[in-house]
Design a protein around this nucleic acid. Structure first.
Length: 233
DNA sequence: GCCCAGGTGGGTA
DNA sequence: TACCCACATGGG
């Protein structure tokens, strides 16, 4: 099959690298992931699914107060107890199921130890995570990148929206397409993927809203200046 | 009141 | 494969 049209041009890769440096200079290091432990990062990755981080923080605080930011403590809450604790994060029934499922699996298979989990090659771990119900590509990659320090780029809704508006990806580009594009364009490894994803979220939260298709206040409007013409829906 | 938020899985055509 | 929908709380 012809893949000619789908191959990102060298220009787009260059533009992506420029956007990264520009964002880093403008917004500075984001110091992600905001968490005190590996397990807290993983819990946060599940809790933040389609949810404002502010609400996730409330749920995390409630888990901390209950000593449930580790697998045994989390399971000790029981289903109803966990549902109550994570309620502020929304979708609380689903998320309680997912957290309990992950904690049981993590304990049974890896003794609840991140060191054991991430001793495997990340592509293998990724497949194992994706096999768990309720852990999709973004959550799996967030766990790999932030909890496991693996060189994997996390694609989220902001990433897709920003890249589409800059015509870096096509309107039909899916998760894997976008991820491949970034990982082939930016070779900086874990540190860079960590920072870039966090910068894109910071940019998206402030300027790249669904209701503002022109990104009227976006600092990328003027950089690189050729992007301006591509700055639509 | 209405829209949106750092997704995922199930159903239907 | 490509949509559509449920899942739910809290802030602007």
């Amino acid at each position: 099959m012809l893949r000619y049209a789908a191959r990102p041009s060298e220009l787009k890769r260059l533009r992506l690298r420029k956007i990264y440096t520009h964002l880093y200079r403008q917004l500075g290091p984001q110091r992600w992931w905001p968490a005190r432990s590996t397990f807290e990062m993983i819990a946060g990755a599940i809790l933040t699914q389609a949810t404002n981080w502010h609400n996730v923080e409330k749920a995390i605080s409630r888990l901390r107060r209950r000593r449930a930011l580790q697998p045994q403590g989390l399971l000790a809450l029981g289903r109803r107890g966990l549902e109550h604790a994570v309620r502020p994060a929304g979708y609380f029934r689903q998320k309680a199921v997912r957290l309990r499922m992950f904690a049981s699996w993590y304990l049974a298979r890896y003794h609840g130890q991140a060191r054991r989990l991430f001793a495997k090659r990340w592509r293998v771990v990724r497949q194992e995570l994706l096999a768990l119900h309720g852990i999709g590509p973004e959550t799996a990659d967030a766990i790999l990148l932030y909890a496991g320090k693996q060189p994997v780029f996390v694609v989220d809704a902001y990433t897709q929206r920003i890249f589409r508006r800059h015509r870096l990806i096509g309107s039909a580009a899916g998760y894997e397409d976008t991820q491949r594009f970034v990982m082939k364009s930016l070779r900086g490894g874990e540190r860079v993927y960590n920072e870039f994803h966090a910068l894109l979220v910071a940019l998206g939260k402030r300027y790249c809203h669904r209701r503002d298709p022109d990104c009227s206040r976006c600092p990328l409007r003027t950089f690189p200046h050729r992007v301006v013409e591509a700055h639509v829906t």
